[in-house]
């Protein structure tokens, strides 16, 4: 089953009120690959990520201009239902955010229930396969009815990944998914990302350049001229090229630690 889809941004510009956070981002993200978005704080990489599933506009006053095509369908077309977009594009956040009042099981199938799936066997199967795919099944299979909030941080984040992939999304967005985790949990998530790209288009924002180098096939480097300026895409290329032989001076300065 090939669910993964191509993401094509054309002149995507995003605002918070009158503040322009990113300016004319144009890039194509290939299906079944891992793309890392890197860059200094405030460069707009998270904003760009959140504009891929229209979560950017959740912030009051925020808006997006330009086109964002998921397999040739513009998700910012006025006729497009925003909830349908978000159902098709999964997201994992910086801090693990399982629903605190729900059990582990209910957390995993929350998205399916929102899609109207009620059949117990379907939900059970999806819960098991998603938890297995998120490498969490072995740790929680005997306590699915326990609250998701009782797990460790790394387990909670894997629970959130399971929740995101339970609905079989076409694209999986990850916003610094390891920044709140310890090194061992981080490694577990990174291994997981490597497997997820067999089925999904994965886009990951990270502050950690080693992580970008380890997990991604392609890397996009975002930057800003100075505080208050919009973030721009400086360079987008194969990860090996970005880290070994970047085409732009700014990219080289950043990855060698000379700024940012």
């Amino acid at each position: 089953m090939n669910m993964a889809k191509r993401v094509e941004a054309v002149d995507v510009t995003a605002y918070y009120g009158s503040f322009k956070a990113i300016d004319s981002i144009t890039m194509t993200i290939e299906p079944k690959s891992v793309t890392a978005l890197i860059g200094p704080s405030g460069c707009g990489k998270s904003t760009f990520l959140r504009s891929i599933n229209r979560m950017h506009e959740v912030t009051p006053g925020a808006k997006v201009q330009g086109k964002l095509m998921i397999d040739a369908e513009d998700i910012y077309d006025p006729r497009v239902d925003v909830t349908a977009v978000r159902r098709a594009i999964g997201m994992v956040f910086q801090r693990p955010n399982p629903f605190p009042t729900m059990s582990i099981y209910d957390n995993v199938v929350a998205g399916l229930r929102l899609n109207g799936v009620r059949k117990k066997s379907t939900l059970d199967d999806a819960a098991e396969s998603s938890l297995r795919a998120a490498h969490l099944w072995g740790e929680v299979s005997d306590r699915l009815k326990r609250p998701g909030g009782g797990l460790s941080g790394g387990q909670q984040q894997r629970l959130c990944i399971a929740r995101a992939i339970a609905v079989e999304p076409q694209v999986l967005l990850m916003d610094e998914p390891c920044s709140a985790l310890d090194p061992i949990s981080t490694l577990a998530i990174e291994d997981l990302i490597g497997e997820l790209k067999d089925r999904y288009t994965v886009v990951i924002v990270t502050h950690n350049m080693q992580q970008a180098a380890r997990v991604s096939d392609r890397t996009a480097f975002f930057s800003i001229e100075s505080t208050g300026d919009p973030g721009r895409l400086v360079e987008f290329d194969d990860t090996t090229k970005i880290f070994q032989n970047p085409g732009e001076k700014k990219t080289e300065d950043y990855i060698t630690g000379r700024f940012g």
Binding site: N53, M55, V58, T83, A84, V85, R86, R87, A88, G90, M91, F93, R95, N97, P98, F99, P100, A110, G111, L114, N115, C160, R163, A164, V167
Partner: peptide, 14 residues
């Protein structure tokens, strides 16, 4: 928590 609301919205909740 905003994080919980966003979790629901990102799953495609109205």
């Amino acid at each position: 928590p905003k994080a919980n609301e966003e979790a629901a919205l990102a799953l495609g909740a109205t």
